[in-house]
Design a protein around this nucleic acid. Sequence first.
DNA 1: TCCTCTTGCGCC
DNA 2: AAAGGGCGCAAGAGGA
Length: 559
Amino acid sequence: MALVPDQHGPGGRLQPLAEDGTALGPPQHAPRLAAAVAQEEAETAPRWVWAAAESAYAPLLPLRLGRCHDLRLTEALLLGHEGSWGAPRSLGAAWSRLHALPVPPDLAETGPADAQDSLFAPDRLQLPPGTDPLEAVVAVHAAQQRRVQAITDQVARTRFRLLIAAESAGALLAAEIADDGLPWRSDLHDGLLTDLLGPRPHIPGTQPKLLAELAVELQQALGVRSFNPDSHTQVLRAFADQGIQLSSTRSWELAKIDHPAAALMIRYKELARIHAAHGWAWQDAWVRGGRFRPEYVVGGVVSGRWASRGGGALQIPRILRRAVVADPGWALVVADAAQLEPRVLAALSADAGLARTAAEGDLYEALAAQAFQGDRDKAKLGLLGAMYGQTSGDIGPLLATLRRRYPAAMGYVEAAARTGEDGGVVHSRLGRACPPPAAEWFDLTEAPEAAGEAGARSARARGRFTRNFVIQASGADWALALLAGLRRRLATLASGSDRPHLVFFQHDEVIVHTPLDLADEVAAAVAAAGDEARALVFGDTPVRFPLSTAVVDCYADAK
DNA sequence: TCCTCTTGCGCC
DNA sequence: AAAGGGCGCAAGAGGA
């Protein structure tokens, strides 16, 4: 069912579609779109087709819809798959390509990100003047279906359809999470800040008491006056004047220094970061009515991970998890995938030995028992090094052991690295493509003997990227499938204002806010969704993707 | 004053 | 111990 909101007012148009995208019957105009959509959802539960969830779904909330086909996200996936990486993906851009018209650039990439709330408004679809948006939605959707059908390999085609469905489900969910919000206790947050920094300054912009005192102590320890500890330049100079040459002001660098100012500096940086990134200003900007409402960007990372825009939703410091507390009578079900990426590697490569370590329990423990004389740290370090392309340190012998014992798994990542070094493109399990090298990359690497060390270094860097991409992106495939399945299951548990709802997602971790009496059912739904995601994405594999799940009152109490 | 780049660090 | 993948954000540095 194609759906286009009117430019103004609460109405909109609907157009029934066949599976291949051809229109079934004439479009209908609904004076009250939300009511018409709710009725259609209850009666036929169609797959909704729209330009972008931000413009079509967000205005309908808190209405809940089951599934959708998001044209903008699908366009991006298809363009990547077809090798047209980075081409504009708006409805107008897709329509223009269909009709060989000049393609408008994506708005978000052309200017400063102001007026973000209107970026996806109906009148910002980038359509040529006079074009009917509904006609464009129908035509672009049909064309996308044809492009998917053109994938010749049947397994690849099926997986790509799954990718589109999962990405689109993510679009629904991101809008819903932004609408529901993560429970956030400003009073507890404030208490944490006061303990760490001192009371909130009355005058905005002034330093909290404890931070200011630390700055003074630093000045005394370094024997300087009018010293700004936030300035790298001044910090480096002050330490140099004490006879200490630092190559940077990084904390681990300071930790090696034997000087009373070093510990003070580290402490100052920790506190200053909390204050700047997640202090009172952050709370004022992002917490309203006991909820933190993050703006997720679905597909915002090339690997398919979500990104966030404003609010730093994916970088909440662990210490502030104390402020995330369920409402009275409610609970948080916190679940995170254990050792997701090594399990993804085991499943992707079908390495029999590595799969045995990932059949259950602690993967690194099993790996250590098999190949590292029980040394779990070595096993973990070696496997992470293999997945990231680490070469330095004492990693060599560990990688050699892994290569001998798990040739298929190591061969898999090394093949991905070689493809990247040669300028090629790799894909996730479900078919998400990695970006090709930038044009300048070829200038550097085409003639390595001429480009010299810089070219070789650039090629190796791209090899590390593609090596990690196949794992990180396939992990994102799995996580999206988990989200979609979990969301579907939660909808069956209850409806209305007492329904359990997802409130947080961070790469391999989810939080569901649920009425207490449904918490056990939610936990079961999480486990079922995880196993379903494994079967959908990786099929028949002995690898398991266990989730460690905790039912808690406060996020900080989950493990 | 505005804008971009760099640095450093939070998260996975 | 501090290198190897992916991000977003704030503050300072420095040029226009």
